[in-house]
């Protein structure tokens, strides 16, 4: 009965689209399927992909964090100013991660303890963290990070024997871990319960507030790590690094079929969404399609990603209803 909706699940569709884009790209565009290009294309999505993991968990639980890109910027600015002050890089990284976790804690505290909507809170902290980033670093740009670390983040340095750059390899490992956590543990399944019906989850004995707090801390932590990756990858720490990236992350996650209302979606879908936007943009760039058109394509894909599943469900529902009304008449 529900065959249409069953096989046309949006995350499957995104996966198929991803393969189609890849095949079409390697068929039509010279140099697209080259390992060097793929490494570069993948590495360009590194920060978005990393942040998309905790963001998926948040959206599944019916929350959203708009402050991630600002946290990325804050972490980058902090790393830059500490590096300029002569700190060792090995010390800077944990400090940045700590600041990220604290920022996430503030978000989570405001959402769970004060009871504010996450959208309003994180619009506020979006402004706050970006502001702190420019307080920390001003309009300076810090470069000259240690060669060994900078090399680690570039796409030219890959995991031996493959075309996968190190940040993406790390992302792959984290993605597998997150997928297992989300889909195969009580923790992950609780997130679906929270997203679907928060009160019901609470009465079922799920520690709703604690779980949400953990998710926000996780998002801040990963965002600050992404800030370090960003800084190393571009070799430059600036306060406005990653400006507006939060919308791209959310667009990717939603494109992968994670329902913004919470309770639905898979991590595989979100990862496919990230890769789809990354590969598509790379392919369009190789074909000399201007950046503006890429932006339009992203927007249309986003609208389609939410509209299509709803159209499919309403069509199949209507068909079911018609079948239900027709059945007694024939019997």
């Amino acid at each position: 009965m529900n065959t249409l909706a069953k096989y046309l699940r949006w995350d499957t569709v995104v996966g198929v689209l991803l393969i189609a884009v890849f095949l079409a790209g390697s068929g039509t565009t010279e140099g697209f399927a080259d390992t060097a290009n793929l490494s570069a294309a993948l590495n360009d999505t590194a920060e978005i992909a990393l942040i998309a993991l905790p963001m998926t968990l948040l959206v599944v639980a019916g929350q959203v964090d708009l402050s991630v890109a600002s946290m990325l910027g804050l972490s980058s600015a902090l790393a830059g100013s500490l590096w300029e002050a002569g700190w060792s890089f090995e010390l800077i990284v944990p400090i940045c991660l700590l600041v990220g976790a604290l920022g996430g804690l503030l978000n989570g505290w405001l959402v769970t303890r004060v009871g504010l909507p996450s959208l309003a809170v994180t619009i506020g902290t979006l402004t706050l963290y970006r502001g702190l980033a420019s307080v920390v670093l001003g309009d300076k740009a810090i470069a000259d990070f240690p060669e060994a670390y900078a090399q680690w983040a570039t796409y030219t340095q890959t995991v031996p024997g493959t075309f996968v750059p190190y940040p993406i390899a790390l992302f792959a490992v984290l993605a597998v871990v997150t997928a297992v956590v989300l889909h195969c543990t009580a923790f992950g399944r609780s997130l679906y319960a929270i997203g679907a019906q928060e009160d019901a989850a609470y009465f079922a004995g799920i520690r709703v507030k604690r779980l949400k707090l953990v998710l926000f801390v996780l998002a801040g932590f990963v965002a600050s790590f992404a800030g370090i990756v960003y800084t190393l990858r571009y070799g430059s720490a600036r306060a406005d690094n990653g400006l507006g990236l939060e919308l791209v992350v959310i667009a990717s996650v939603l494109l992968g079929g994670v329902d913004f209302d919470g309770g639905k979606g898979t991590l595989g879908g979100a990862v496919a969404g990230v890769l789809l936007i990354g590969l598509l943009n790379n392919l369009l760039t190789l074909n000399d399609v201007s950046n503006e058109i890429q932006v339009i394509v992203t927007g249309l894909l986003l609208v389609a990603s939410v509209l299509t599943p709803r159209v499919v469900t309403s069509v199949s529902e209507r068909r079911q209803r018609r079948a239900a009304t027709a059945a007694p008449a024939t019997a």
């Binding site: 959203v64 959208l119 919308l247 959310i250 667009a251 939603l254 913004f260 209302d261 201007s290 950046n291 503006e292 058109i293 890429q294 932006v295 339009i296 394509v297 992203t298 927007g299 249309l300 986003l302 609208v303 990603s305 939410v306 509209l307 709803r310 159209v311």
Partner: peptide
């Protein structure tokens, strides 16, 4: 229309529209 008749979340739709309109403008 997308929000009211398409019944899709407002944040997603208007985020998509943000990109589309911005893209058209820049192009």
């Amino acid at each position: 229309l997308l929000v009211s008749f398409g019944k899709v979340p407002a944040l997603v739709v208007t985020l998509g529209m943000l990109y589309v309109i911005q893209g058209i403008d820049h192009a």
